[in-house]
Amino acid sequence: MAVKKLILIIFFLILYPLNAQRKKTDTLYVYEKVIVYDTVYLEKALKIKPAGIHSEPLVISDMNTVPEVPKFEYITITDTTKGLKIKAQKFEFGAETGMGLKNSSWAKESSEKSQQTGFNAGIWISGSIYKRFSLMLSAHIYYWNSTFSLDTNKAETWLDGYYFTEDRQPLLFQKFNDKHLEYALQLKLFYEWKKFRPFIGILANQNVYKMQFMVPENNVLNKLDDFKSKEINFGYSFGIQYRIMRKFLLSLEYQEYKMRNISLKNSAFNFDIFKTNNTFAERKINLGISYTISSW
């Protein structure tokens, strides 16, 4: 009996701990610790001074945004392994069109209107020379409307009559008006200040006036022919441009140049109807819009 009791006690002592170690169903709570980190950016001024371009320092204030370059500063920024690579746009090519008013002192007595109206179109190329300064070379063609018309077949005019060439050939006046084409070449110096670009310049132009005469053919005065002016005149200009968009500019310009006489030429004749010692002045005011086609 003592042996049985001993075996039972040992068996009990073995089973009790095993029963205490059995898994019990329970609720498990899991807590997640959330840590919020605030990103602090150090504001650092990045000074960029590419050759030929003057601009305000760029400031990087947000790592997720790209600094905005002023629209009138043509700068290309490329991210490389060595840092920021700055490429300045040194040259620009574009076109311009506009309208204007013209006043010619030589035509005051004949003109019914004090000013001629017209329009123009042209192309230009511009390059930076020093900081905010740049040079522009432009070529324009102008069309000017007529302010007076002289026609000897309709009414008497102050130019009626016979004229003679250097070799004494007779010419009979027929028609003349101041409607004409004008070709101009300009060199301008610009200064860029914010969106404004004041400028001064020099110009050379040619006015193509036409006068019609009856000319001799086989010694008989029976052929109509045109005589044209081809003199080169020189003058100056000044004005201002305003940048309304990155590639569009408005311009207001004043031009003035001197004309020494008005000499009319023909391939078959040499003839000067206004051969005097007078110097005439022509003045123009032009309003135009310019577009930058490309830059490099």
Rank of each mutant, 00 (worst) to 15 (best):
N270Q: 09
W124N: 02
D167C: 03
E156M: 11
A281L: 14
L189Q: 04
E43S: 07
I293M: 04
L150C: 00
Y130P: 01
K5S: 13
G127H: 06
V36H: 04
I60A: 08
M63S: 08
A268Q: 13
L15E: 09
M1W: 04
K154Q: 14
V30E: 12
A20C: 13
K5E: 15
K258V: 11
S146F: 06
L189A: 11
K24Q: 14
A20R: 02
I244G: 01
I53W: 00
T78Y: 10
R132G: 13
S105M: 12
V59K: 01
K223H: 09
N270K: 05
I125R: 06
N205G: 07
G122Q: 01
L172H: 01
F227Q: 02
Q174Y: 08
Y236R: 09
L171M: 05
A121E: 08
F93H: 01
E112V: 05
K44P: 09
K44F: 13
E43V: 13
Q255H: 09
A204I: 03
V66I: 10
Y257Q: 07
L15V: 04
L185Y: 08
N277I: 11
S128K: 06
A121T: 04
L84P: 02
L46Q: 03
T152N: 11
L250D: 07
K247N: 13
P216C: 08
F238A: 13
I77L: 15
K44G: 06
F176K: 02
F274D: 10
G94N: 02
G122P: 06
V220K: 00
Q241H: 12
F234T: 10
S111D: 05
K194E: 15
V34Y: 04
G100R: 00
T117M: 13
S110C: 04
Y236K: 08
A2E: 12
Q116T: 02
F271R: 00
L221C: 07
Y162L: 13
L84W: 10
V208Q: 04
I240W: 00
N207I: 10
L181I: 03
K210V: 09
K4Y: 12
K230F: 11
T76M: 14
L187S: 10
K44R: 03
V36P: 07
F11P: 01
W193N: 09
A20N: 08
S146E: 14
R260Q: 14
D178L: 01
M99S: 10
